[in-house]
Every structure is written in structure tokens, then in C-alpha cells.
Design a protein around this nucleic acid. Structure first.
Lengths: 264, 264
DNA sequence: CTGGACCCTCCCCCCGGGGGAGGGTCGATG
DNA sequence: CATCGACCCTCCCCCGGGGGGAGGGTCCAG
């Protein structure tokens, strides 16, 4: 039996942290003296403590650590951990994108975004639409695109596009729609004909990873406000060059259009 | 002038977050109506908001973001940001090490650490020693080693070693000492002759990156407790294969010795 | 038996926000 | 001119994963 201090020295976890893990049901001491409240740990608990330590270094929440520890089957446990490793990799990607974007932002005098005003006529397209959470939008998007491509096939007359409610960005949940223009929009599964209304669009093209699009969005916003206009209606995007066209995010090109109207 | 809601839409920062940045002195609205308290932002503030957004994505603390924004000189600002990017890279390394270590830990039935009991005689060596913070120990170590190598040169009769007070791990601050064994320890700058006392050591060898050493430490602890012994005195390490010998962390070998005595 | 090291619980603090209450302000409409 | 809904304000409490410290009990070696 080891006192909490001795156990702390063996595991490099602070005494405080060990007490917290006890309270959280993560690492119960082998014995708790019910008179003095002293915690006594067994040597066998050292490896468990080390697993916890590692998982915490990876910012795995305590609740998830608990779930992992309570999964006895090594295979299932491995899958749980693999999920977190995947999350970490996604985070690394995000970090890299943020670094790249930051470097561009900090360049003195960034080139202002080139914006064009364009009157867009109403168009009927093949579309998949749903109300989604911001976190799920990437997965939803992938599925919707696959279904669209299967339904429209080679009959597409233009690049893939999408529209997104403001609420998706502001409340984290809103309507998203992806479409392919085609002469006779089919009806298959979630794919429906949808008529995009006519609109006057302030249009610009974002080059690069989609994670850095908000810089372009901001430039567009600056232009819109600077030209005494305001925005009404969901944002429209068209994916001129995307992941399926080029593996290099730097080559991606996304056309972004905001429906605007003149004010003042 | 943009209301906080409009500004929020342009920057993809929530209204709440903008108010917080105002309170924190990070992003003052261009105008605050002193009757109604309404915040009004200028279009020019959009780029600033985006820089903040990027920095926050990199988990730069608000105080540091403020410091960066208040540094007008682009060069100095670039250096500040570079510091954070360096921190990020270090963190990535740490993450990778944790992932690797975790994989090993989760392998069923990890090989127990091979421990040897060894009586170490007292030895006088050339050493550099200081009380340091855990966060600074890496930088201090590098400088001390450089000074040692310069003073001892080719006269070293064994690998580089170090000793570390328990307090360094427990309180985050304690005495660290690095040494090179040599027949006639010189006295130069911070380099002094120091006599390491005789001790009985429980010795094992850690293979791999030093960040994963606590697993080996834990194994050593298990062995010590399991053999009815206890630890007294600073931990000793000897760097048999280190970064200067091999670029591959997997090849590094560190001998870890705990001064022990028999109990019970 | 006494001192110091060790252990206990409890409360408040940190960061970077989110949720929601309760109330004031704005501008388009009737 | 009133009214209504959208917008904005402040204030307080919540989260996770701990750290700092107060105030008090326990253990063991000298």
C-alpha cells in the first residue's frame, strides 16, 4: 500500500490531481480508511495512472478517460483511443491552417479582396438540403455530394454549389443546401429540384483551404459595408476547384456570393 | 459604423465573445454610446478581429494576443508570433510523444522494466548545478552541457550525467546538476568539481524520447516498492545515447538510477 | 510526548467562454 | 403616435481541470 504522496512520486501526478481523479471516479484508491479518510493506493494502480496521464496529455476529457478505462476489451478500447487520435489529427490540421492564415494576415497591407457585383437569375437545380449542426456539416456535406453526383452523373452543367443560412454560423445550427446545376433536375432519395431565387450577389473568390475562408468573408463584408450595401439571405458558394480536383488545398478555389441590396 | 451583431456576422466571432474582448481590452469598439452602452465597430476593425480569431485558434492567451496587437513594429510583432508558433511545435512534439507512449502503454502486458541493483562508489566529477524551474530546465540543461563540454573537452571518461531533486518534479522547482566524469575536474565559469556521494542505486535504462520517461520511472517505482525498498536522494540519470549521438529519439538511451535502501 | 511531515476537507481563483434572466433601445409598421 | 419584435445592455451562474491556501486531524521517529 502506498500513501497518496508516495503514489504521486511514482506517477508524477500531483496529490491534488490524484484526489480529483478519485472524486471523478477515475482512479479509486485501493483502500480508503473510513476513519481518517486517508487514501491508500496499490502498486498495481501505477500503470492505470500512467494511462490516465497520457490521455490527459492529449486533452482527452476526464469523462472520456473514464469511459476508456471502463472498457475492458482491448479492441473496443483501442477503437475509443483511435477516435481521440483522429480528433487530434484533425486539430493538427486546423492548427496548421490557422498558422498559415495568420502568416498571411500579418503580412503588412494584405491585398484587398476583389469583389464583383453580379445579377444572378433564378435557377432550378438538383439539390440536397437539411438543417444541420455546424459540427456535423462536413460529414453531411460529403454524403449529400455523393448522393447528388450519383443522381446527376455527367449531366451537370456547372460546378458544385451550396447555400448556407447565417444561423449556421451564428447559432451553430441552420439550413445548408448543396446543389448541382443540370438541365432536368432529378428526384432521387434526398435529391430534389430546388429553385434558387434571383439575387444580386457580391461575389469574390476564395483561394485555399476552406478553414481560412473567414478572411475572405471579412473582406467581402468590408466591401459590402463600404459600398453602402447590406446582406439579406443565405450565403452562396460555388466550388470551382475542390478536394476532388486537386489534392493541394492551396489550389482550391471557392466562389463566395452574398445576396446584397443597396441601403441609405 | 456596425452594430455588434453586424460585426459578429462579418468576423464569425459571437456577440458574447466580442463583448469579452472589449472587457479584456483586446478589441475596443470604435464608439461606445455612453447613454445606452451600445458598442459600435468600424469596418477597419475587421482585420484586427480576424487576427485575434486566428491567434485564439492557436490557443494564444488573451493577454498575449493583447501584447501582440499593441506591438506596432511588424518585426517585433513577428517575433512575438514566432514564439507562439515555436510553442505550438513543441506542443506537437509533446503530443506525438504522448501518442507513441500511449500506444505502448495500451499494449496488453507491457514488458516489466529490467532493474539492476548497483552499489555506486563516490566519484568526483566536473559539474554545473543550479536551482531551476521545471519549465526552464531544458534551456538551462543545454547551456550547462555546452559549458561542461567546453571545460572538459576530450578528457571525459564517461557519458554525460545528471541528478535531479525530487522537488523539481513535485514542486516544479528544485536543484538540477549535470556532470561529466573526468580524471581532474576543472574549475571554469559555472563548472565546479563536485563529489557525488556513494549510493546503492536501482538502475534501469529508458529507451526513447525523454518525454516518455515517466513510464520507465513508474516501472522503477513498482520494482522498488515490490522489493521492499524506498528511495532517498536525488534521481541520477546518465545519457548513454542522446540527441547529440543520434537524431532519432527512438534510439536514445538514458540510464536512470534511484538511490534506494531496504525497508521493513 | 512532541514536532514535523503528511493527510484530510473546504472554499476561492484561473481561463475563455456559454446559458439565461431581467431590462433598455431601435426602427418599421399600423 | 404607439407598438412590436429584433437587437442590445449588464449581471450572475455554469463548465473543465486543476492551483493556492486555510484550518485541522494523523502518523511516526526521536
Amino acid at each position: 500500500m502506498l500513501s497518496i504522496g508516495e503514489f504521486s512520486r511514482l506517477t508524477h501526478l500531483t496529490v491534488r490531481t490524484l484526489r480529483r481523479y478519485h472524486d471523478a471516479g477515475l482512479l479509486e484508491p485501493a483502500v480508503v480508511d473510513d476513519v481518517t479518510g486517508y487514501r491508500w493506493y496499490s502498486v498495481d494502480q501505477v500503470p492505470t495512472a500512467q494511462v490516465i496521464h497520457r490521455l490527459r496529455e492529449l486533452d482527452v476529457p476526464l469523462a472520456d478517460v473514464r469511459a476508456i478505462l471502463r472498457t475492458p476489451d482491448p479492441g473496443a478500447r483501442g477503437r475509443l483511443v483511435a477516435g481521440h487520435l483522429q480528433r487530434l489529427e484533425a486539430e493538427l490540421d486546423r492548427t496548421r491552417a490557422a498558422v498559415a492564415s495568420l502568416r498571411r494576415l500579418l503580412r503588412p497591407d494584405p491585398a484587398p479582396v476583389a469583389v464583383e457585383l453580379r445579377a444572378e437569375p433564378a435557377r432550378t437545380v438538383a439539390a440536397v438540403s437539411a438543417v444541420v449542426d455546424q459540427d456535423d456539416v462536413a460529414a453531411w456535406f460529403a454524403g449529400a455530394v455523393a448522393e447528388l453526383v450519383a443522381a446527376v452523373g455527367g449531366a451537370a452543367t456547372g460546378p458544385l454549389g451550396g447555400t448556407y443560412d447565417d444561423a449556421l454560423f451564428e447559432q451553430g445550427r441552420g439550413r445548408a443546401l448543396v446543389y448541382l446545376p443540370t438541365p432536368v433536375p432529378p428526384r432521387a432519395g434526398r435529391v430534389q429540384p430546388v429553385t434558387l431565387p434571383a439575387a444580386e450577389l457580391a461575389v469574390t473568390t476564395h483561394v485555399g483551404d476552406h478553414d481560412t475562408a473567414d478572411v475572405t468573408y471579412g473582406g467581402l463584408g468590408t466591401w459590402v459595408v463600404g459600398n453602402a450595401m447590406a446582406v439579406d439571405g443565405p450565403v452562396r458558394e460555388r466550388y470551382l476547384v475542390g478536394p476532388e480536383d486537386s489534392p493541394d488545398p492551396a489550389a482550391w478555389r471557392t466562389e463566395i456570393g452574398w445576396p446584397v441590396f443597396r441601403v441609405g
